[in-house]
Design a protein around this nucleic acid. Structure first.
Length: 501
RNA sequence: GCCCCCAUCGUCUAGAGGACUAGGACACAGGCCUUUCAAGCCUGGUGCAGGGGUUCGAAUCCCCUUGGGGGCACCA
């Protein structure tokens, strides 16, 4: 297990669904390690289950990795010296080596029917005294029995002949593991009856021929390490270094993150796929940072860092082996932080598609609207995701605003007094240049003249022009609307107030 | 049922026997700022799951209990 070989790590997803958040975090750790060591990060597609194959999923995996900025050095679309990078295209290699194992006495053909295996499992479950698993029936077939089965031409699989006694010890960089009783591993299938390899077999073969040095993968694989180790031994191959990264748990901390679960509080939907985070308006730079602090820590003093900083500091040994709950509120905060860091033009570019979708206003039309660049900076520090903000700025894009007339009435005033104040505002706004540097002092001055608090006066104007009690900063909002629309909305508000008084 | 892994504030974490009256962040509460809402700044509370050891000394090492998680497929 000593290793002076150049670092090569891989992400090996199976195209059976969209790219999971947990997979993304595992991919991130692999990527960080490769970049830190100057090694290679490889993408290998484990498409050995033909029944669960989902056509869109490979594209989703590639897109998600790209979105997060996790570029790979070898794999689909980029090539490499150790291809093919699809397991479905490597069948001859698996067959060659399973034949080798059979010849060497480390594997054997099994002819057991599904019915027999089912019955066996049921029996074991009923007995409740041992681990479930294959009883090695075909391992001890005589040569004659074997030829008989072969002659019959029925389906068969290849199973690994695990040592039946003794223990297998192995190491994991992140934890100390007890030696495993070999008897616990019950001759798993290596080659399925359809000729495709199982995960365990393809994984070991490919990791060897792709010269993988470090295996960083999910916690759920720990219990299959003894099998893998014995396969490496049977082949006489050099073992990779293992590090099993912790699972990401549901925000409640109970159970692993999975679809069809709802968030405990509020009944909000739980996001489990990377694409869902993108669609929910999270920034890739925030996701990158966020994913990295789950199970790893950049510094005792801060959770914020750039990808370059992460690369410089990352080490496998620093990964925390404990599974953790998904800290969603921290993600929201972090995303808000990254949004605030964006240049206004960048934010505009990124948020426009979200607003277009929500409002139904075509994207080009939205971009052409002079109010857009004015309004975006106003909401920049008020949103946590790109999916927010429209309800704060829609007043600047619609012809007419609707609101409850009584909202106009300032606290401590009646309708008639409010109307009088609004008329004064209207007069001032009609005369002065539309410039915050002019309007701000002028309106503050006006409040003093009218004997009103600034908050009262601004509040009236805010509701009259935006239709909202809570809106972006007043002067920016007025500028986004332009004098004409501001005055028209004042007129409209005056009518409403007259009706109230 | 069998096997394995994990365990520090509500949550994400720092901590690799003495520097810990346990640090940071999010969330929460209070305050400041303030044209609403935010953002920003300041202050605050809350934690080493429990019990045994080892040691002059334990959040850190060992054991048990408890709790949580994972695995036991011709799925990965």
């Amino acid at each position: 297990m000593s290793d002076n070989r150049p670092v090569r790590v891989r992400m090996a997803p199976s195209p059976t669904g969209y790219f999971h958040l947990g997979s993304a975090r595992t991919a991130l750790f692999n990527w960080l390690f490769a970049r830190h060591t100057g090694g290679k990060f490889i993408l290998r597609v484990e498409d050995t289950d033909r029944t669960r194959y989902v056509p869109d999923s490979l594209q989703d995996i590639v897109d998600s990795l790209g979105w997060l900025g996790l570029d790979y050095d070898e794999g689909p679309g980029v090539g490499g010296d150790c291809g093919p990078y699809f397991q479905s295209e490597r069948l001859p290699i698996y067959h060659e080596w399973s034949d080798w194992l059979i010849r060497a006495g480390h594997a054997y053909r099994c002819y057991c029917s599904e019915e027999r295996l089912d019955a066996l499992r049921r029996e074991q479950a009923a007995r409740k005294d041992e681990a479930l698993g294959y009883d090695r029936h075909c391992r001890y077939l005589t040569a004659a029995q074997r030829s008989e089965h072969e002659a019959a031409g029925g389906p068969s699989v290849v199973r690994f002949a695990m040592p039946t006694e003794g223990q297998t010890s192995f190491t994991d960089v992140l934890r100390k593991l007890k030696p495993w009783e070999n008897s616990q591993v019950r001759d798993p299938v290596l080659i399925k009856s359809d000729g495709f390899p199982t995960y365990h077999f393809a994984n070991v073969i490919d990791d060897h021929f792709m010269a993988i040095t470090h295996i960083l993968r999910g916690d759920e694989w720990i219990s299959s390490v003894p099998l893998h180790v014995n396969l490496y031994r049977a082949f006489g191959w050099e073992m990779p270094i293992y590090a099993h990264v912790p699972l990401i748990l549901d925000p409640s901390g109970v159970g692993k993150l999975s679809k069809r679960k709802k968030r405990a509080a509020g009944d909000e939907e739980l996001l489990t796929f990377v694409r869902e985070y993108r669609e929910a308006g999270y920034l890739p730079e925030a996701m990158f940072n966020f994913l990295a602090i789950m199970g790893w820590s950049y510094s005792p003093d801060t959770d914020l860092f750039t990808r370059e900083q992460a690369i410089a500091k990352f080490d496998i040994a620093d990964i925390n082996p404990a599974a953790g709950a998904l800290p969603m509120s921290k993600l929201d905060w972090m995303n808000g932080h990254y949004i605030r860091q964006l240049a206004a033009a960048d934010l505009t570019e990124r948020i426009a598609p979200f607003w277009s979708q929500e409002s139904g206003i075509p994207l080009e039309q939205l971009h052409a609207d002079p109010a857009l660049p004015i309004v975006v900076p106003l909401i920049q520090e008020r949103i946590k995701t790109l999916a927010e903000g429209w309800d704060l700025v829609d007043f600047a894009f619609v012809a007419e605003i609707n609101y409850e007339p009584t909202m106009l009435i300032a606290k401590g005033l009646n309708a008639a007094q409010t109307l009088a104040a609004l008329k004064s505002l209207h007069r001032v706004l009609a005369e002065l240049p539309f410039d915050e540097a002019v309007l701000d002092p002028a309106l503050r001055n006006l409040a003093g003249e009218l004997g009103l608090k600034v908050g009262q006066l601004f509040g009236i104007l805010r509701v009259a022009t935006t239709g909202k009690a809570v809106a972006p900063p007043l002067f920016g909002s007025l500028l986004a609307l332009g004098r004409e629309r501001v005055l028209a909305r004042c007129t409209r508000a005056e009518e409403l107030l007259r009706a109230l008084s």
